[in-house]
Amino acid sequence: MPAAQQPSKAESTRAAILGAATELLSEHGVRGVTVEAVAEAADVSLGLLYYHFENRQDLIRAALAEALDHYAYRRPPQELPPAERLRTALSQHVGVTTEAARQDRVYAEAMRAAAFDTAIRPALARTLEGWNGGMTRLVSAAVPQLAEAHPEAPAETATALTALVDGLQQRVRSSLLPAERGLELLGLATEAVLAGGPSDAG
């Protein structure tokens, strides 16, 4: 049978190893990803793992890229008014019990690792672009006047909001801030930047 007709055994082994590694990543972070644990979870020998990945760093890079490239944003319901869609989209990332939290943990791990390993940056940059791009569309829909004032304004506003979410999420994840307080602060900032001036939210 010609090799091209089915996903090769090597490909499916590689996929199984990557799957196990990304699973461990979102559960225990980069520190929890040891070659032994991944080999065991993927049910392959260490020798086979090293056939596919040169070393632990190579495996972590591939797993982070794999997880980041499959980062799935949950779109807020279409029937909500635009400003409400924006708030919903942002707030799903502040909190530790949400579905998004697992993916966000991997994103945070990648962010931290990228400071020392430039090979991780391209996948991370794509994820951030997607995150900013999605929020830019929601900001534009929520406040059409922003783009009229300045074509770059919706993107700048969206970037500020996603950076704030990243910061709040980090504090919630590290138990430095209760999730409810994080959401309250996010609401405050969202009102202020959408109003495009001094906040009059109480």
Partner: peptide
């Protein structure tokens, strides 16, 4: 400065934003 929000809340929000931006800067993005 002008804000109707509590100064403490504005401060918390600003420092969290600095941290979020700092991550991106340190990650080379």
């Amino acid at each position: 400065v002008e804000t109707a929000a509590a100064p403490q809340a504005v401060a918390e929000l600003l420092t969290a934003l600095v941290e979020g931006l700092s991550q991106r800067w340190l990650a080379g993005l």
